[in-house]
Design a protein around this nucleic acid. Sequence first.
DNA 1: ATTATCTATAGATCTATAGATAATGC
DNA 2: ATTATCTATAGATCTATAGATAATGC
Lengths: 212, 212
Amino acid sequence: MTAADTTVNESRERLLDTAQHLFHQRGFKAVTMQQIARELGVKQASLYYHVPDGKEQLFVEVTTRSFEQHRQGLQAAIDSVGPGFAEQLAAAARWFASQPPISLMGMVYADMPALSDRNTQRLEGVAYRCLFEPIATMFREASMRGEICPMHPDLLAGSFLALMDGITYASSNQQASPPRAAMGEAIVSLLLDGLRPRAENNGAMTYALSEN
Amino acid sequence: MTAADTTVNESRERLLDTAQHLFHQRGFKAVTMQQIARELGVKQASLYYHVPDGKEQLFVEVTTRSFEQHRQGLQAAIDSVGPGFAEQLAAAARWFASQPPISLMGMVYADMPALSDRNTQRLEGVAYRCLFEPIATMFREASMRGEICPMHPDLLAGSFLALMDGITYASSNQQASPPRAAMGEAIVSLLLDGLRPRAENNGAMTYALSEN
DNA sequence: ATTATCTATAGATCTATAGATAATGC
DNA sequence: ATTATCTATAGATCTATAGATAATGC
């Protein structure tokens, strides 16, 4: 515990990565320490050497880590394209499409209720700060610059997150679904221009109706 | 089993209602037979008289029932407003806002992996037929009538479902969130007109920027 | 005789701990 | 001596079954 604090701990990192992957794919309750151990090729009890505080703490740690990564990547993506809102929204969508799914709504539905109140509150706070806040700020600033119609930034941020979360569902569930990046682009243009045909149709629409 | 098939079975209905409520609020794995029994004021083992095929079959039954109810209500809502797309979309949104949440994405994330393959496929089929199909058809027909820009109806249906699912999340999670019906309206106008300011701004936007 | 409950419990998991064991570095 | 694993297992759940018990209707 003393020297390992500073040293890069290879085994522990592998454990966290594996747990993160499994948890975010199947949920806290559905994943057992047994399964994580099997994936790593060790015995279940051996995990507790690296994670002495147990399964719930492990979940909180990897989820927090994942959300922090999203905050950083999301902010970098938004900042990388300058102050135009349409570009920022597209950059945010590309970021989500490039990342492994988070199933935010699934977590709230199934994982949070299984955690202690303290951990639920903590994770909700992290989710707010890392995912909701950066996006709401983007909408709020665009609104103040007059680039978008004045709608409640919180509602827009929640809608955007729900849509990004939904891309996961569609692409895992549907047979022969389009790539996630293309779905992200289509959703961005939907959010920008809406469904109603415009007089000045400048061809921003992708994803035209094919068959079915 | 012989006479009870036709007779309305009061206790069994109460059991199904309670199970449906709990399952769709917390998920298949998180809800125990113990909890369902406690809610009903009976002992856990007594449930098996009404549901001899066990917990998983109970989940499949109540989820199927719930999806069928959605199909009926959704179709009735859409049909009740005639052929105008904007009205149909608003009616569908009102339907979802009026119903207890389904957490469709949460189910796919957490519940499906815990079921047998057979039951997963069955429920996916029911979800497709009851939720996805009616909405995709609405978009497809509006598209053919030229009322909306030509975008892939499946993508639009998935996006709409994700947004309706997301309303749940926002209204359960956010402090002092607006009522679900108002969020539904705002999302409909967002989908119709998009975020970009229009020259001919006919004031369809609700939910104007307030504070924060 | 049928219906609907109950008590008791087997059997299956799952988390987490205790203590042994092997390998590595001083 | 420290690090990282292992075996073994206690203790807590959870599902589902077996068989007893009470109430109702013929």
